[in-house]
Design a protein around this nucleic acid. Structure first.
Lengths: 200, 200
DNA sequence: CTCGGAACTTGACACTGACTAGATTGCCTG
DNA sequence: CAGGCAATCTAGTCAGTGTCAAGTTCCGAG
């Protein structure tokens, strides 16, 4: 009850609720990631995030226009993180391993990044971040000598991306719990990639 | 104004609105598939589906308990369709091709099937249908001589499933529009699968 | 014929996203 | 050291949604 020092007594039902949260944008982003990791993007509610941050229900809208805006920001951040993770990959299977690791370390980002229906497709920050990540992917693939496989290099890239993306997606959906068991998923993936992408 | 023959005048604001729709469950399912195909599962509203069927807002709940129930039913139907599509696949790359074709022909089902956060995981109909599809997948993979690749057959199955699933997912998300161009995606996939899964 | 249960309606409640106007704050300029 | 201004946050409102409980209509078995 006895509030020690009501520096500004606008409302102290939460311990130190100042008018300006300080870093609301960041607080909401991380809270959103928690919720998405637990319940998926469907369970996300701006009002709930506001409550968690101890802030009024309309406050989030000032940082992210809408729900779609919030998810778009998360996706953009995800693509930036992915690009960074892929940046200095040594070779193809290393890049794939990093892709899988990224999905495991940032499951919320990963889900949102590939849920186009939830995003504002024409958002500038999003499209540039995505382009950056795509570039990183492309350079990772450029090391593979596609002619060894009898297909052009773009198709080799599609194959590699499909393999990594499918593995990561199925993994996050707990569809590989049986086969992978308690081995390190990233290691399992490297084995697969090495086997499939060895030169004939 | 002059309603021709008010066979049962409960309400004739729609031409022939009878009290019993006749096949509401089916009508709602197909309408839901349309909506999901267009806007994704996020854009799905039970009330909207009810309106489309010309039925009161709470009617859908009688056939599918809730929104989750509806999506679960769609997922179960999807796994059954997938199992049927995979049933008489001749070999591995044929199965993969069928997997990709299934995703293209039933995009709504495919999306919902792999969105665990939206489904009732313990639903009986769903789990049995999924088991059926998993079996069909497993038998498709059993033809590959895994020892040729130096990995055990379960891992070969994981590799094949990952490749097909990743390709299908990226395709539906329009992430492969560039590389695939206007070629038949299914054919492109068969090329990839043949290349990666050839015996050394 | 009737009567029981299935199919659907009606009404209500709590919750959500979105929008608006206004209050508060802290910083930056002069 | 003011004082103003823009960013930040509050408060109130509206339409739309899922879900529940209680009615109404209809069909078909007995």
């Amino acid at each position: 009850m006895a509030s020690a020092e009501t520096d500004k007594p606008n409302r102290s039902d939460k311990q130190d609720r100042r008018y300006h949260h300080g870093d609301l944008r960041h607080a909401i982003l991380t809270a959103a990631l928690d919720v998405i990791t637990a319940d998926g993007p469907a369970g996300l509610s701006l009002r709930d995030l506001a409550r968690r941050a101890g802030v009024s229900h309309a406050a989030p809208a000032h940082h992210f226009r809408d729900r779609t805006g919030l998810l778009t920001a998360i996706a953009a951040e995800g693509f930036a993180l992915l690009a960074a993770a892929l940046n200095d990959a040594s070779d193809l299977k290393d890049a794939g391993g990093r892709y899988v690791r990224f999905a495991r370390e940032h499951p919320a980002h990963f889900q949102v990044m590939f849920a186009p229906g939830l995003l504002r497709a024409d958002d500038l920050e999003l499209t540039t971040a995505r382009a950056l990540a795509t570039d990183a992917l492309r350079t990772s693939v450029s090391g593979v000598h596609a002619e060894d496989f009898g297909i052009d290099s773009r198709l080799a890239g599609v194959a590699a991306w499909s393999l990594a993306h499918g593995f990561a997606t199925l993994l996050l959906g707990h569809n590989l719990d049986g086969p992978v068991g308690d081995r390190d998923p990233e290691e399992v993936f490297r084995t697969l990639a090495t086997t499939l992408f060895r030169t004939p």
